[in-house]
Write a protein that binds this DNA or RNA. Sequence first.
DNA 1: GCCAACGTTGGC
DNA 2: GCCAACGTTGGC
Length: 147
Amino acid sequence: MAYLILGQVAMNYWLVKSEPSVWSWDQQVAKGAKGEAWTGVRNYTARQSLVAMKKGDKAFFYHSNEGKEIVGIAEIIKEAYPDPTDKTAKFVCVDIKADKPLKMPVTMAAIKAEKKLADMALVKYSRLSVQPVTAEEWKLVCKMGGM
DNA sequence: GCCAACGTTGGC
DNA sequence: GCCAACGTTGGC
């Protein structure tokens, strides 16, 4: 059932992945409140999530390949618009800013070890770079991250 | 560095 | 529209 908080639909939660050698959490933090365009997504499943993102939604920031851990929480500050780096004009991007780091990064190993997180897209669809996170998953990962 | 998973491309 | 070949992602 959908419910309302102060007249707004409850926010949605997401997870975005980046190889830290390409774009890291620290680089995201350095961009501050004005954030940065999350470009380069070239997968239609991931695109669906980008389109569904609303301003104010939160997203886990995951480091793939190196680290393999959720390191921080980002906030969507601009909803989907055409990705300027996409010559085919089919794909979109959003702008995100760093919100806050997790006190303790939550590793892929820790997520796999937690039975309640077995259905996370991060585990089931390991190649998907932008994905939804349920409110239950969000809460649990935050707790594991010392938040 | 390997390779499984899986999305995309292109010949038919 | 099918499907084999190919390319990419990302965990290990």
